[in-house]
Design a protein around this nucleic acid. Structure first.
Length: 216
DNA sequence: ACCCAGGGTCATA
DNA sequence: TATGACCATGGG
């Protein structure tokens, strides 16, 4: 008998404790972080955000006013800095066009997802990071760790389309933004703790973390 | 020296 | 639709 999606959550929570995501002091900082962390270690993102803060540029209007070289320079520690400068600018231009955050708050959840997905450089995971963590809407975020962990648990194949997996998770769990928030954060924490390959290596057997989540 | 990280876009078949 | 190349810094 395999684990239910809720049982996996309970085991992750017991093993790792509450993660209290997203790291960041404001919704806008969360949105910026969501873009900068694409395929990038969070520690590098923190440096780029610190650069923006130090220049007083953690602000859509300020970011748009910077020339490409300056913005890319501030983003440099987060990697892919030329691409991310363009993506962050495109996002900020969209953000400013929406009026203030109060106006964004009025989007229905699915309409907000679709609007974000039209912004150049924002794909499904980044959009859902923003919708869930900056706007507290019940959208389940799927990432590479989700695929790795749940395929090893035998609960998914792992190569399903993004939307297929999002719908699967949301059908197995009640629509609760706090639950989705904590669950995805735990998946990332667990994903970092297990091996990328060799799920049966000695270290992992001892740690009981690669295929199995430790017993309650 | 090598592998990879809290993805997404674009070109090609 | 479905692969593959590309982007780039910093830590293990």
């Amino acid at each position: 008998m395999s684990l239910t999606f809720r049982q996996v959550y309970q085991r992750l929570l017991k093993q790792h404790g509450g993660q209290k995501w997203w790291p960041g002091d404001s919704p806008f900082e969360i949105m910026v972080g969501a873009i900068l962390t694409q395929n990038t270690a969070w520690t590098n993102v923190e440096r780029a955000i610190a650069n923006l803060k130090a220049e007083g540029c953690l602000d859509a209007g300020r970011i748009v006013s910077l020339d490409h070289e300056t913005l890319a320079g501030l983003l440099r520690p987060s990697g892919y800095f030329n691409i991310k400068a363009k993506r962050l600018r495109a996002f900020c231009e969209w953000f400013l066009q929406q009026g203030d955050e109060h106006r964004l708050e009025q989007y229905e959840t699915e309409a907000m997802r679709q609007a974000l997905l039209k912004v150049h450089g924002i794909g499904p995971e980044t959009a859902d990071d923003i919708v869930l963590y900056a706007f507290n809407r019940p959208v389940f975020v799927i990432d590479a760790y989700t695929r790795r962990i749940f395929s090893r648990l035998g609960l998914i194949d792992g190569d399903e389309k993004y939307e297929t997996l999002r719908m699967l998770f949301q059908s197995k769990l009640e629509a609760d933004a706090d639950l989705y928030n904590e669950y995805h954060a735990l998946i990332v924490m667990h994903g970092k703790a297990i091996c990328r390959t060799k799920p049966d290596c000695d270290h992992c057997r001892l740690a009981d973390q690669c295929i199995y989540i430790s017993e309650c």
